[in-house]
Write a protein that binds this DNA or RNA. Structure first.
Lengths: 160, 160
DNA sequence: CGTATTCTCTCGCTCAGCGAGATACTAGGT
DNA sequence: ACCTAGTATCTCGCTGAGCGAGAGAATACG
């Protein structure tokens, strides 16, 4: 997987390493999704829903679809699917009755933990080889890369 | 996006940060794919093909499908699609004539650079805020996380 | 040589996601 | 109070990605 350019600029090796990590995560997610009869989209939706639930942020179909880049029609089908699997429940908002509020069922939380739990454990274990100072460096680095990527994305979005 | 647990164990913040970076990369990739009329799968295939081309590793439909977890039927359709877009070319292997070898067209390389080029530039710029020693730490860290994830995945695969 | 194996492709099917539009409710002006 | 514009969700019809099963072509191995 190494190339000539990697030897020219060590920073490129780092970009490459970053991408490798991303690919590995995606493969793991796909593995999990396939095993539980979920589609990649379902998993992305679940992650978004679990994040929102932990932050006690209410989620509507509209917001969800927006976040995972799905048409309103597609979002409806997605929620139908998750509801049929007993992972999520629809509830009419009482104050604005056009809205539907999505609440994740305990089963979804369990499912999430059964996936992330062991992986997180493994990751935490691997982190012990690094000092707190080093981990801090990595954290700052990742934050920088995330914002840089977000910037590049926003830039690309404005440049058709 | 921060939670109670994050405050309990700083290492969890790091896991979270790692995931955030992954999500951001995926969104960028999706953005690019949508703009060029490619499906997420097509992009993953292109990345695999470009990697293989850079490493001067020949790729057959079988290997490609295996790598991106696609059925042989799906792989055929995928290659048809990429070939129709002029991004890839099929060639019978002369030594083993059951095989088809896939070669990426220059256009695909250009397309890849038009995507990764600017992003990489942005990332490299953001990296300048870190010392070579720090970048080395990050690189080791990412490598550790990648292998840890791969291990977790292999573990999950054996544990139905 | 014949038989098993390997690689790719074809066929028929299911279902995720899209565009367009229907439906239901709210907000704001008059 | 009413009419209108705006917003949130869902329905319908359709396209096409990906799957399972199996056919066809070439190789390997006894």
């Amino acid at each position: 997987m190494s190339t000539e350019e990697d030897r020219q600029d060590p920073r490129l090796r780092l970009v490459h390493q970053l991408r490798a990590a991303t690919v590995e995560f995606d493969l793991l997610a796909a593995e999990f999704a396939a095993r539980h009869g979920l589609h990649p989209t379902d998993l992305r939706a679940l992650i978004a829903l679990l994040d929102a639930a932990r932050a006690e942020r209410p989620v509507t179909p509209g917001r969800l679809g927006e976040q995972i880049r799905l048409n309103s029609a597609g979002t409806t089908t997605l929620i139908d699917r998750l509801e049929r699997l007993g992972l999520v429940r629809r509830e009419r908002d009482t104050t604005d009755r056009r809205r539907v509020l999505l609440t994740v069922e305990p089963r979804a939380v369990d499912l999430g933990w059964s996936f992330f739990g062991p992986v997180i454990g493994t990751l935490l274990g691997a982190m012990d080889a690094f000092t707190p100072a080093e981990r801090d460096t990595v954290e700052r680095f990742l934050a920088a890369m995330t914002t840089a990527t977000a910037a590049a994305r926003a830039n690309a979005a404005h440049h058709p």
